[in-house]
Design a protein around this nucleic acid. Structure first.
Length: 748
DNA sequence: CTATTCAGTGTTTTT
DNA sequence: CACTGAATAG
């Protein structure tokens, strides 16, 4: 026992060893929040106050949940499988699976991601003949999710004007459609689970009796519905232990409500608030910067981070002429840090919005630096993966219209808009799913005789001899596929589906299909590791996993690579070195935030999160001009930069020392500034050098080598000058188009 | 029905 | 710019 508690500071110790009562822990960044949470769980179990069975621990990200489980299992020799540790969505999913009947859901109900949800909404708007100028689909989506996050069904939303009345109407139809298809969106997972507990007294008492300790991470990010859910589960017996930091609340846009912290104090009659302010992560200068910045926000609960370590280095500020320049600067610094022995994985490039990763990726790629992008286009978001998943979903649940629509004509089998429309009408008339309508009209007769005498299951061959076209072909294929998958272990189901559906054949025939095939292969690997790790290895569980943990799986993870991500997804992580790029007005703070109430303050908290990710070294950079929406924009440096005390900063550009602090740079001089900068720092104008190197150097048939792709031969050329491109066929990496300006090709 | 092209449009952050 | 939806040619 004592070993568990050793190494905690007095405040941490107090929090961990608190008696059975509800408590609020205000934990600053890097103050050992996760440590406190996990140690408390271990302590409660070890001291016999609760069994693993009686613990409910909630986080926001799967990453955090996983981290928590691994930490607990290093502290205690227990099987964590039966413990309820996970995200709100994950736990609600678990509950709904267990009681799908009571919740009014089919047992293989599917989970919609935002894109799926939007697709359904668009379809509904179209079928209702709604004016999508007046009612943009995204806004309808926003309305529905907001209502759900408040815990409101369509019938419960109060309306005061026609616009809202219309929105509620869409919401109603959407609800009906989802019910018919047996699908639920993210918010629905929570709402259903909540309603299930409200209505079903037996279940509620069961769970309330079970969980005597409820622990919540990142409490400042909870929305109203999540709070109500927690309150319901807590009943009047459970001790609710919440950890949060109001300064790190960055999800107001999706309903997070910091007011929950105040409500929590009141509703749970909190007498004990523990503040963790000692920071074990960053050097003093970084903390000073963060503390000073966040002090500009109003209405804080109040907290000041300190460290017993030294001040460390100043924060390095770089004023780049262009976004391209900024990327080049970062690449150079990364290289030299790496040569000093800092692992790539210990460096992070952070940015406000996903679109900014492009320039950075481009520069990194050409410098042959390994990197990994979190978020943005995720593995499970890729087109080919979504297609594959749609087949799987249809196998699991034939009523999933969304899935059916996605694949009914992919690979192409000659079913067009016309046929689909007829099908739609037919389904409407019958009040059933598309599949039901389809099967009634097009069942070929040759298929699906559920005959136990059939020795060889139909559809178990690799590929149907001749994939039949049209609706009949589709129906036959799906039915054969379903039968063929019966009884197979999950990875083989995936493999069989990939072949039998024709997806593999399709991408094999496609010119640029190599990467996609690789991803499809990776999907089989994902299924294999899922089977190893998960307690429930059914297809349905795998599909839920794919929806809920979309961000977790990445092909080629594990190697030492630079970490690229948005500031949002960096929350909870820490790195030796952090590069925070794009510190410009309009970008960070984002221009949309200026009109929103409290928008800039939320952006400031976001900035606070970004700063506190760094342990030792922190780079802040901005660009005077940046390509955005296809045109060059000129931005002034972010106000947040000016909110950091001067003495903590070290400007890396002498030119700019006199720059914006004394006076804002004047637009008309900017071109000149850039020229001066280039002259002073010997920046080579790459476009010029390419032109000089000449169009003549590269010709078809030429053998070349590329830093990353290896040896290859040029198969075609395009245009001349700065934007010249060549197509190179590499022996290993396939055929690619490369821009001569950036790709460092070497003649071989 | 499919492939290609074109004009229009919109754009933060995520479970 | 990148993506979508619609129009048009094949």
């Amino acid at each position: 026992m004592s070993s568990l508690l050793s190494g905690l500071n007095p405040e941490q110790l107090e929090a961990v060893a608190l008696p059975h009562q509800s408590a609020l822990v205000l934990a600053g960044a890097g103050s050992g929040k996760t440590k406190v949470l996990t140690t408390r769980i271990a302590y409660l179990i070890q001291s016999g106050q609760v069994s693993p069975h009686g613990i409910l621990a909630v986080t926001f990200t799967n990453k955090a949940a996983k981290e928590m489980l691994t930490r607990i299992s290093t502290m205690l020799p227990i099987n964590t499988r039966g413990m309820w540790v996970g995200t709100f969505h994950g736990l609600c999913n678990r509950m709904l699976r267990a009681h799908h009947r009571d919740a009014g859901l089919p047992q293989a109900f599917q989970i919609l991601d935002s894109a799926d949800q939007l697709a359904i909404i668009k379809r509904i708007l179209k079928s209702l003949g709604a004016d999508d100028q007046k009612y943009p689909p995204r806004q309808v989506q926003w309305f529905i999710n907001n209502a759900k996050e408040e815990g409101l069904r369509a019938s419960q939303v109060e309306v005061y004007d026609d616009f809202a009345r219309k929105m509620v109407e869409f919401y109603t139809v959407y609800e009906q459609q989802c019910n018919k298809e047996g699908v639920v969106d993210f918010a629905e997972l929570l709402l259903r689970s909540y309603e299930l507990l409200i209505r079903n007294e037996i279940l509620r008492e069961h769970y309330c009796g079970r969980f005597s300790h409820i622990l919540v991470d990142e409490f400042q990010d909870t929305n109203r519905l999540q709070y109500k859910w927690l309150k319901l589960l807590a009943g009047d017996k459970a001790a609710v232990f919440v950890v949060g930091d109001d300064d790190q609340s960055i999800y107001a846009f999706r309903g997070a409500n910091t007011g929950n912290m105040k409500d929590f104090e009141r509703d749970f009659r909190i007498t004990k608030i523990i503040k963790l302010e000692q920071n074990y992560r960053s050097h003093g200068n970084i903390l000073d910067a963060a503390n000073t910045l966040i002090r500009n926000n109003s209405g804080r609960l109040g907290k000041n981070l300190w460290t017993s370590e030294g001040h460390g280095e100043p924060l390095r500020v770089y004023n780049a002429a262009t976004d391209f320049d900024e990327a080049a600067f970062i690449v150079d610094e990364v290289k030299s840090l790496r040569s000093e022995g800092v692992a790539l994985a210990q460096m992070a490039l952070l940015y406000r919005s996903n679109a900014q990763s492009r320039v950075l990726e481009h520069a990194l790629f050409n410098a042959a630096l390994a990197y990994r992008v979190y978020g943005g286009m995720r593995f499970f978001d890729r087109q080919e993966i979504k297609h594959a998943l749609a087949y799987l979903r249809l196998i699991a649940n034939l009523d999933d219209d969304n899935a059916l629509r996605r694949i009914i004509n992919f690979p192409l089998r000659g079913i067009g808009a016309r046929g689909l429309e007829q099908l739609q009408d037919e389904a409407q008339r019958q009040g059933g799913s598309l599949w039901a309508a389809m099967r009634q009209n097009y069942e070929g007769g040759t298929t699906l005789i559920l005959d136990s005498e059939v020795k060889i299951l139909p559809g178990r061959d690799k590929v149907p001899d001749k994939p039949k076209k049209g609706m009949e072909g589709f129906v036959a294929m799906i039915e054969a596929l379903r039968q063929g998958c019966e009884g197979l272990p999950l990875p083989e189901v995936v493999e069989h589906m990939l072949e039998y559906s024709g997806l593999v054949a399709h991408y094999r025939a496609e010119r640029e299909g190599a990467d996609r095939l690789e991803n499809l292969n990776e999907l089989i690997n994902a299924a294999i590791s899922f089977v190893h790790e998960a307690e429930d290895d059914s297809l349905t569980a795998f599909l839920a996993h794919a929806s809920l943990e979309a961000g977790e799986h990445q092909a080629g993870s594990g190697q030492d690579a630079l970490q690229l991500m948005t500031v949002h997804s960096s929350k909870g992580l820490e790195f030796h070195t952090v590069f925070l790029s794009g510190l410009e007005e309009g970008l960070f703070p984002h221009e949309n935030s200026r009109n929103e109430a409290g928008g800039v303050e939320e952006e400031r908290r976001l900035m606070y999160v970004a700063l506190t990710r760094a342990r030792r070294r922190l780079y802040l950079s901005f660009a005077q001009s940046r390509m955005l929406h296809g045109q060059t924009r000129y931005n002034i440096p972010s106000r947040f930069l000016q909110e950091i005390p001067d003495n903590l900063l070290k400007w890396l550009q002498p030119v700019q020392k006199t720059g914006f602090r004394s006076q804002a740079p004047e637009t008309r001089n900017r071109g000149l500034d850039v020229a001066i900068q280039k002259a002073e720092f010997g920046v080579q104008d790459r476009a010029t050098s390419v032109r000089d190197a000449g169009a003549s150097q590269w010709r078809i048939g030429q053998n070349v080598t590329h830093a990353k792709f290896g040896a290859g031969v040029i198969v075609s050329c395009e245009s001349q000058g700065a934007d010249a491109r060549v197509q190179v066929k590499f022996s290993r990496a396939g055929t690619k188009w490369l821009s001569l300006e950036y790709a460092k090709l070497v003649p071989a």
